[in-house]
Write a protein that binds this DNA or RNA. Structure first.
Lengths: 212, 212, 212, 212
DNA sequence: CTCTAAACGAGACGGTACGTCCAGTCTTCGG
DNA sequence: CCGAAGACTGGACGTACCGTCTCGTTTAGAG
């Protein structure tokens, strides 16, 4: 009479459980100390089940990451101004990165060739759209911008996000847009952008080694 | 009778042997599969000897890296032109990176807090010097440039070096300098820089995933 | 339009296939490495089909063994002489054992309580019949023989078959009969049994350990 | 002042601990379910330590067995009578076997070629000595006995010990000696051996299968 | 020059995780 | 309902390294 409930998890249900377990482990112990055994134990299943789906912890971690973080440029921002659009794009990138610690990213990039910078291409499309609209509005003379220039804001932000330990602030985003990107486009900001305080400020962090 | 040669290595001699062994291992198997046991075996010594000097493989790898790659900005370039100087700086960065596979870098950044972007600060100093001289020569109006702008060329190159799989070419460097940095400084290139072919070219690589 | 042949095996047909697969596996990899999965794969069926019939690999192996080796004392030998009958019984035991490697037997005895020495009782009956006929023929005074004595030849042969690595030869069988069993019955062999060569011969094999 | 006790066990001390742990596991779970992990856990050491010493669980089990059970025929019995000596030998065998369950033995014989019947040869020597003394005392005409006959009592007992589930009783031993061995030697027992009750008794156990 | 303390080389130790195999059970689907 | 197929829980396998500890052997340098 009563609906026979499956005792044993299978397929998608099981997979979701595992990916959530992996995500939890990633945040508790970090990628470096992520173990298949740990994930299996937390998901209350066997290691074989994991290995049936992902060849190694890198693939598992990538899958867990994607499971939690949806696609980035689902719908391009449209704030009505060039500056607003670009800032919104950068904000979304930063917000997205919030979930993914640098350490995890580096660990993945060290072990997996999966994690690519593919998003760069996607971002290029988004930026092209933004510039298109800006040209239509007459904010800039032409949408014909070198791809190198077009990717400057996202590249610079990504550089900060992944390769430095600087906290990502609104000021940082404003700097990238107002000191670098807009000037490159020959855009002269109107009166609404007079908060250019941080310019010419020295970086606080000191070098302790030689880095790379 | 014969000169008594020390059978057992110690101190610096031993340390050098180890660091070379580590460097060799790094290139043979990569950072991910670098093991203390492997290095010890290759250097024909015991693991204790390694642990006496470096707390873990990350420290050892960093040390091995530094042992091979000297400091970056030993002497700032001085080619006589702003453009030449900046290009030279980027070339040196690229050349230096040649020795250090991306995988190694990511592995290190995942495990060690040692590998920092400290070099960024050093590069800032170098760039400041270059701009100073350019201002003196009258190439640019003033050396008073926002630190954000000043670090744009090195940040962009580092982004390419570490976060993409693009090969580092002369064209890439030229793009960064001619399409981004010099325009930002309000610099109008002379007749010697008419090789601006790559502009507006589309990026060839396609996205295969969502990356990050 | 040809007669639709049942693609799916069932009942006895399926069971036979499985038992033959099991027997084949037993001879290819031995009992120790016999696996339910291996048998299922070889029989092109699922594990559940096996578990529906036999609780574990021991039971399956026993079944496979019995499937190949029929009952031992189907019809008691009747050669016309006491000596001939006993030798024939021992020969049949030896021949039967030929199919079943010692390793398989030990494996089964370790895991299954099924494989019993029940045959001992059967053999006792067979031996009783043989002695009965010998008494009737007048070869021995009486068929009233202690059960212990009666089982001596089969027990000794079984000891050799299962617990030693000695090859089972005609001489071995002759020894058991002529040096042990017949003397125990007070039987004086006639002239046809003068091939008593092996007596007093030393055993060739040397001890290498302490065994048990 | 205080004796510095080594925290970490090594060499023989560690080995003894392990063998005792293995012996304990053998008795708790039996050979079939003996696991290297179980032994390592009980001995509070790593699996590698076990594998460094023994290639597999069979070797470990054999070693554990030998560690507990000393050599069998350290000093031959000398009771003053042939019967007494033989009975004493069989009693010792039975006592020794008490420690080693049949299941363990079969498991070992299935997996290891180490466990041999070498002891048979040793027993032959012991029996030869016993017969020698019996001949000297005049109990038997000559010590020249066929090796087959000489090993009959030990072979029969071993058959019972290993291949049947019969409990090993004094009566069983008496049967072997009084009904089989002594008669074979043409020995006529004196008045002290009138307890020949069990003769002609039927075996109680019934066959449940076809055995082997 | 002898003695001593430290460092070296070698490798065992207690442990964690790997990636694989198999047991025995459960589920789905098709005939 | 049962066969075929295969996924699931779970446990052990045998291996690789980790970082520590111990042993016996150089080897510098202090006395």
């Amino acid at each position: 009479m009563s609906q026979q409930v499956s005792q044993r998890r299978r397929g998608t249900e099981l997979e979701d459980t595992i990916l959530e377990a992996a995500w939890a482990e990633l945040h508790e112990v970090g990628y470096t100390r992520l173990t298949m055994e740990g994930v299996a134990a937390r998901a209350r299943t066997g290691k074989q089940v994991l290995y049936r789906r992902w060849r190694n912890r890198a693939e598992l971690a990538v899958a867990a990451m994607r499971h939690k973080t949806g696609s980035i440029a689902d719908q391009p921002p449209d704030t009505g101004t060039l500056r607003g659009d670009v800032i919104e794009v950068l904000r979304r990138m930063a917000r997205r990165q919030h979930d993914i610690p640098r350490e995890m990213l580096h660990g993945l990039m060290a072990e997996s060739s999966e994690v690519q910078m593919d998003v760069a291409v996607i971002m290029a499309d988004v930026m092209a759209g933004i510039l298109e609209r800006a040209a239509t509005r007459g904010e800039i003379a032409s949408a014909e911008v070198s791809p190198r220039v077009m990717s400057v804001p996202t590249d610079l932000l990504r550089h900060e996000l992944v390769l430095t330990r600087h906290p990502i602030t609104e000021e940082l985003i404003a700097e990238i847009v107002d000191e670098v990107f807009l000037p490159l486009l020959g855009f002269v900001p109107g009166d609404d952008v007079q908060d250019q305080g941080p310019a010419l400020r020295a970086r606080p962090e000191r070098a302790r080694g030689r880095g790379f």
